[in-house]
Amino acid sequence: MLYSTTSTPAGPLTIVVDGDGAVLASGFCDVAGLAPFVDVALLRQRDDVGDASKAALSYLDGDLHAIDAVPVRQRGGGVFLTHAWDVLRTVPAGEPVTYREFAALAGRAPAIRAAAQACARNAAALFVPCHRVLRTDGTLGGFRWGLPVKRWLLDHEQSVR
């Protein structure tokens, strides 16, 4: 497994990929911040991690769809979480949804808490854009990498739409 950390306007973005380039984890942190998702002792650092790095840079440069085609392989999600993460990838940039709407999109409208858990347990920030989910009242809610990062991502998507 390889990782790279890139400076972004929202803070450092670390991306971990497996041998075929699928994103295993990513977050707005240094590599140690991804320890809940991957064994960081097994990672090898690179300047970039191929297509995932290129896609992230393109996204930051304004191509909001660049991250869409990057394969993601999260572990330990179970059936609903894995499905919910796939659904998150279909939420359009610049068009955030509420947790209630996300639960409905995932096929379990009453399961708002389960939808929130899918966001909270998402290991592949940016590539699985849980930042696009808001509280029912439209406020930001939570984000593992901090509300300033979530706000920056949402503002970025609005500004280049």
Rank of each mutant, 00 (worst) to 15 (best):
P96M: 13
G62N: 14
R161A: 07
G27S: 07
A115T: 01
A109C: 02
P12W: 06
G62D: 13
D48R: 14
A116W: 13
L126A: 04
P96T: 11
L57P: 00
R73Y: 04
G77D: 12
T136P: 00
C119A: 05
R73H: 08
D18A: 05
S159L: 11
R73V: 01
L88A: 12
V38G: 08
V128F: 10
F127S: 04
L134T: 10
S26F: 01
D63T: 09
I112E: 06
A109R: 13
R46Y: 08
A52R: 14
A106S: 10
A10K: 10
V38L: 13
G27Y: 14
V97Y: 02
V31C: 09
L34K: 15
G27P: 05
V79G: 04
R100S: 07
V149G: 04
L153Q: 11
L105Q: 11
V72P: 01
K54Y: 13
G77M: 08
S53D: 12
G78E: 07
G19D: 13
F143A: 01
L153S: 08
R135W: 02
V40E: 08
L153G: 07
Q74K: 06
R132S: 00
E101M: 06
T14N: 04
T98M: 02
T5W: 03
Y3E: 01
D39A: 11
R46S: 05
A93L: 11
L64P: 02
H83G: 12
L57T: 09
P129A: 06
P92L: 03
A125F: 15
L43N: 11
P36E: 03
V49Q: 06
V79Q: 14
V17E: 08
D63G: 12
A41W: 03
